[in-house]
Amino acid sequence: MKSPLIIDYYTDVLCVWAWIAQRRVDELNHQLGENIEIRYHYMDIFGDVHNKINTQWQQKGKFEGFAKHVLKAASDYENAPVNADIWKSSKPTTSATSHQYLKAVELAYDANKSIDMALKFRQAFFIDALDISDVNVLNTLIEQAGLDIGIVNKTIADGRALAALMNNYQVAKQLSLQGSPSYIIDNGRQTLFGNVGYRVLLANVEERLKRPSNEASWC
């Protein structure tokens, strides 16, 4: 049986464009099934939220301006609902806490459990306006998912989860990724990033599936 096409998928859990992309990635998995393998990784976009907003959005309303931007960005996508309170009453300090816990779940259980948990974290923030930089919030979400928080926290206590996260961050920098989400297709033969439409994403992946791995794609 032919090996699946590898798609390395880099996101930040607080990024609205990754939240919008969630439905597209789900559909891609549904359409192509065993022909592809999406490997989830994390990148540092919102590692220091307050510094990011207070500098990059200083002249544009800071948190209030950024909140309006996020709501407007998501308004055209019915599958990406956004709570009006995010970046207003709900202001996570960092995405790194969530990322570390997701790597911890992956180490304690497996990649699929971590992928499921990532969706729950995103839903908690974008739909329920919970602060997913808060360890107590994350512990509750993990327990509600039926996972053993003690086993998960063990991989944090011994440093393995943080090491795995740092590897993700370092590779993202080495690849010079320009934004979240980023799709690295077929070991770097193609890179797509940002608000890529589903048909564009599907066409690029199908093109790679048609061509042998030792032949450059014309896309």
Rank of each mutant, 00 (worst) to 15 (best):
A73W: 01
N214E: 08
F125H: 05
I185D: 05
L175K: 08
L209Q: 02
N83D: 03
T93M: 12
N187E: 10
K91M: 11
A164K: 04
Y40R: 15
I185G: 11
D48F: 11
F193S: 15
N54E: 13
K173Q: 15
A172S: 13
N168T: 00
L201F: 01
S217E: 02
A172V: 03
N167D: 15
T140A: 04
V70E: 01
L138M: 09
F66E: 03
F66K: 03
S213C: 07
D134M: 03
V152Q: 01
I36M: 07
M166C: 08
G188V: 01
Q123N: 13
F121P: 00
D48Y: 10
I38Q: 06
Y40P: 02
N79C: 05
R199I: 14
F193W: 13
Y42E: 04
A203T: 09
R199F: 04
F66D: 05
N168G: 02
G33K: 10
Y101R: 06
G179K: 02
S182R: 08
T11R: 06
K62W: 02
R23W: 12
I184W: 08
D116A: 14
W17D: 09
V205P: 15
G179Y: 00
N83I: 05
A67T: 09
I86A: 09
A145R: 09
F125Y: 14
D128E: 15
Y109D: 03
N29S: 02
N167A: 13
Y169F: 11
Y77K: 01
R122Q: 10
V205K: 08
G146V: 15
T191R: 10
H50F: 07
M1P: 03
L71R: 03
L202A: 05
L5Y: 02
N139G: 12
I127V: 12
P212E: 02
F121K: 01
A21T: 10
S133G: 14
C15D: 09
Y42L: 13
N83H: 04
S217V: 06
S95M: 06
Q190A: 13
E143C: 03
Y10V: 09
H99C: 15
F63C: 13
L107C: 04
L177D: 12
A164S: 08
P181A: 07
K60F: 14
N139L: 03
A73N: 06
H50Y: 06
Q178N: 15
D131C: 07
A96E: 06
T11I: 14
K210T: 04
V152H: 01
L14V: 00
N51I: 01
Y10E: 12
R189N: 08
N112G: 01
V70G: 04
V82W: 07
F125A: 04
K60D: 13
T11F: 14
S217F: 09
H69N: 04
R23A: 14
E206L: 12
N139R: 14
A216Q: 08
T97F: 02
N51V: 02
W57I: 11
E27G: 00
S3V: 05
E37C: 11
T97W: 00
Q58I: 08
V135L: 00
K113F: 04
V25H: 02
L192Y: 04
N51R: 13
N167E: 15
Q190N: 15
Y101M: 11
C15M: 04
F46L: 03
P181L: 05
K113M: 11
I115H: 13
A21G: 05
D128F: 15
Q58L: 07
P181T: 08
N187D: 12
A108I: 09
N153P: 00
E27D: 05
